[in-house]
Design a protein around this nucleic acid. Structure first.
Length: 300
DNA sequence: TGATTCCTGTCC
DNA sequence: GGACAGGAATCA
C-alpha cells in the first residue's frame, strides 16, 4: 500500500516522463475513481492538457497542469497504481484498468486499481493550492484537515509533542492519524515505533519529550531510507515505471510477527489497536518508560 | 473512540 | 468457505 515513501517514489519516477508532456487523449474506462466530475467532462477537460509539475502532500499525489486546469489530487489507497507504459491494454482486456491517457510523445499513462479504492479529485488552482473557496469540485474531507507532511520542515519534535499532549489513544493510532502528521500508514508506523523502541499501545500523552524526539528522528531516518530504496513492495505497490521497491526485505517489524527481532532475538508479537495490526518487539519496545519503569500488576 | 463500509485477491 | 488485509469516511 503506498505510504509516503511509495508516493514520493511514484512522484519522482512519473515526473521524468510526464513533466512537459501532453495528454493527447484521455479515456475513462471505469469512472469509479473520479469524484465530483463526470467521465466525459473529465476526458474533454484534459484532452491536450500539458503536465507542468508533480507534487506530493502526505500520501496524496498532485499532478499540476498548465493553462489553469485543476490539478489532479490522487490518492492510491491500497492497491492503486499510477504509471507509464509503452503500450496499454485494450479497453475490456484488463478489468482493473480505470484510466488510460495517450501521451503526445508516445506511451500511456495508466491508472489501475484492483480494489477500486483509489480516488482522483480535482484541485482548482488558487492560493495555497486551492482552499475551500476553490469550491468548484469536491475535495476529500481528509485533505482539508491534513497535518504537516511527515518529511516536511513543519513537522518538528515540538509540533509532535503538542499533537500528542493529553492524548490517551495509543501512539500507534496517533501515527496513523493524517491530521497529526501526513504520510504514515501501517507499515511505517510499525517500523518507526520499532526504531524508536516504543510500545505501540503507549498512550500518546505518556511519551516523554526525549521519547518523542526519538520517535521523530526515527520517522525521518526511516522515510528517507525507504525513499532511497524506492519504497516497500509488500504485495501490490509498483512505482511510476512499474518497478517494485526494494525496502520490503529491510522491514524490521511489519509483517514479521512470530519471527525473531533483528535487534534482540525475541519473538515479535502482534496486537490489534484501533482496528489495525501492530507488530512489535516485546523486549525492545517496553510498555513502561525506561529508567523510571514501574511494574503494575495486570488486572484481568 | 470504535465499528462498519468499501473491494477483491490471497491465504488457511 | 471464510477470515484477513487496509486508508479513510461515516456512523453510533
Amino acid at each position: 500500500m503506498p505510504e509516503l515513501p511509495e508516493v514520493e517514489t511514484i512522484r519522482r519516477t512519473l515526473a521524468t516522463h510526464l513533466v512537459g508532456e501532453r495528454l493527447e487523449r484521455v479515456e475513462v474506462l471505469h469512472p469509479h475513481f473520479l469524484v465530483g466530475v463526470a467521465a466525459d467532462r473529465f476526458a474533454r477537460l484534459y484532452a491536450g492538457a500539458r503536465v507542468e509539475e508533480l507534487g506530493r502532500r502526505g500520501k496524496y499525489l498532485i499532478v499540476r497542469f498548465a493553462a489553469g486546469l485543476p490539478a489532479w489530487l490522487v490518492h492510491l489507497r491500497m492497491t492503486g497504481r499510477l504509471y507509464v507504459r509503452e503500450t496499454a491494454p485494450e479497453p475490456g482486456d484488463d478489468p482493473h484498468l480505470h484510466l488510460r491517457a495517450r501521451l503526445a510523445g508516445g506511451g500511456w499513462l495508466l491508472l489501475r486499481d484492483v480494489r477500486k479504492f483509489a480516488r482522483l479529485y480535482l484541485l482548482a488552482a488558487g492560493p495555497a493550492g486551492g482552499g475551500a473557496e476553490a469550491g468548484a469540485f469536491p475535495l476529500p474531507p481528509g485533505w482539508l484537515r491534513l497535518g504537516p507532511d511527515a518529511l516536511g520542515d513543519e513537522l518538528t519534535p515540538a509540533r509532535l509533542e503538542r499533537a500528542f499532549a493529553g492524548r490517551r489513544a495509543p501512539v500507534k493510532a496517533l501515527l496513523l492519524d493524517q491530521r497529526l502528521l501526513a504520510g504514515l500508514g501501517n507499515i511505517y508506523s510499525d517500523e518507526a515505533l520499532w526504531r524508536a523502541r516504543l510500545h505501540p499501545a503507549r498512550a500518546g500523552g505518556s511519551l516523554r519529550p526525549a521519547e518523542i524526539r526519538r520517535l521523530w528522528a526515527a520517522i525521518r531516518s526511516l522515510l528517507e531510507e525507504a525513499i532511497d530504496w524506492r519504497g516497500t513492495t509488500f504485495s501490490d505497490y509498483l512505482d511510476g515505471e512499474g518497478f517494485p521497491g526494494g525496502f520490503a526485505i529491510r522491514l524490521q517489524a511489519y509483517g514479521r510477527a512470530g519471527q525473531p527481532c533483528r535487534r534482540c532475538g525475541s519473538r515479535l508479537e502482534s496486537l490489534r489497536l484501533g482496528g489495525r495490526s501492530a507488530t512489535f518487539c516485546p523486549r525492545c519496545q517496553r510498555r513502561a518508560t525506561t529508567g523510571d519503569r514501574v511494574e503494575r500488576p495486570r488486572t484481568r
